[in-house]
């Protein structure tokens, strides 16, 4: 029995485990959701995985498949007049043989259709959305029913967290009269990042995807932060950015470009920070676990498991810390852009 993080078929012919492929397979996205590998009574190895819907856009119309069609057959699927194969998690348009062409550097030269599939990461995001909405809608219903009575159950857990985001993060960084407008956005950021970080740390089936360590995911959140920071910028903020008042004329040539680039580096840093922290955490835990297979010794297992347990506990801290830092820095930048200047 192997953990779900251990994607299917990472054994070489000599029985070695392909550690690199395994870790990359875990931290990158995939078109099926691997659950477990086991050997049945007849000695066959069974790769149990959940097929996910594949949606491709080709010749101006959408095409729907189950990802099973691509993983468990060697014949290409038809897409209009053409054929499509899945190779290393990317779809390629091929001829009826399903063969792909390589250039001299070993890159595939076939065209790819636009891929709108519900991949493992997207499915994991839907799961977290359902989780978050059910948590918060039931809490909101509780408040509607019980009013200002002392909170119980789920509300007792959520209330201090929500108040922390509102009072410490939003009202602490943004001007008093503007802070409450941004609280829903900041709450969404905080809980969405946190819950997805936690789902990523669950090592078996409904968890284990590396969603918040996916650069597209963090980039999308950073774009939202960029708009939240700049769309509500005050007149003083833009004046400060583009004219740099109060500095000598020659310094302005230096300072205005720096300030302008700074508009984009702030959300860029948010993006990189979350991506790199979560991905690095996943890689470290998996490397510690796979130490057993690299050193090929049972005696290393207690050490490896103990170390990965300690790392997992540290990652629980990192999960909440990164959600806090992302939200906190967004609030800080919003506070800087919306406040009236005092100079």
């Amino acid at each position: 029995m192997v953990l779900s993080a251990f994607s299917a078929n990472h054994e070489t012919e000599e029985g070695d485990v392909d550690v690199f492929g395994l870790i990359i397979g875990h931290i990158s996205d995939s078109h099926h959701w691997h659950i477990i590998d086991y050997t049945n009574r007849h000695g066959q190895t069974i790769h149990l995985s959940l097929p996910l819907p594949v949606i491709l856009w080709h010749d101006g119309e959408p095409w729907f498949y189950s990802s099973d069609e691509f993983y468990h057959s060697n014949t290409p699927a038809t897409i209009g007049d053409d054929f499509v194969v899945l190779k290393d998690e990317t779809f390629y348009i091929t001829d009826s043989e399903g063969a792909v062409q390589y250039d001299e550097n070993g890159h595939i030269t076939n065209a790819s259709p636009a891929d709108f599939s519900i991949t493992r990461n997207v499915a994991s995001m839907f799961l977290s959305m359902v989780l978050i909405m059910s948590m918060f809608i039931s809490a909101a219903r509780g408040y509607a029913r019980h009013g200002m009575a002392p909170p119980k159950g789920l509300r007792a857990v959520l209330e201090p967290l929500i108040l922390f985001v509102r009072d410490d993060i939003a009202r602490g960084q943004i001007d008093k009269d503007k802070a409450d407008k941004f609280v829903p956005f900041l709450l969404t950021l905080f809980f969405f990042i946190w819950i997805n970080n936690l789902i990523g740390l669950v090592p078996f089936f409904p968890g284990g995807s590396n969603l918040s360590g996916n650069i597209s995911f963090t980039a999308t959140l950073a774009v939202f932060s960029f708009f939240a920071i700049n769309l509500f910028g005050s007149r003083d903020y833009w004046k400060h950015t583009f004219t740099a008042p109060g500095v000598p004329f020659f310094v302005k040539f230096l300072l205005v470009p720096v300030e302008f680039v700074g508009l984009f580096t702030k959300p860029f840093a948010l993006m990189i920070r979350l991506f790199a922290n979560i991905t690095a955490g996943h890689i470290v835990i998996l490397s510690l676990v796979t130490m057993i297979f690299i050193l090929k010794s049972v005696y290393i297992a207690p050490v490896s498991i103990l170390l990965s347990l300690v790392m997992l506990l540290l990652e629980f801290l990192v999960a909440v810390l990164q959600a806090y830092i992302f939200t906190m820095l967004t609030a800080l930048f919003i506070g800087m852009s919306t406040s009236k200047a005092e100079h």
């Binding site: 410490d168 602490g172 840093a269 990189i272 920070r273 991506f275 790199a276 922290n277 690095a280 810390l321 806090y324 830092i325 906190m328 820095l329 800080l332």
Partner: peptide, 20 residues
Amino acid sequence: QTAMIVAAALIEGVALFGIV
């Protein structure tokens, strides 16, 4: 503590830039 975490996060960001 808040200011410390924010400053540490900014420095950590530079280190992670390096990793990327």
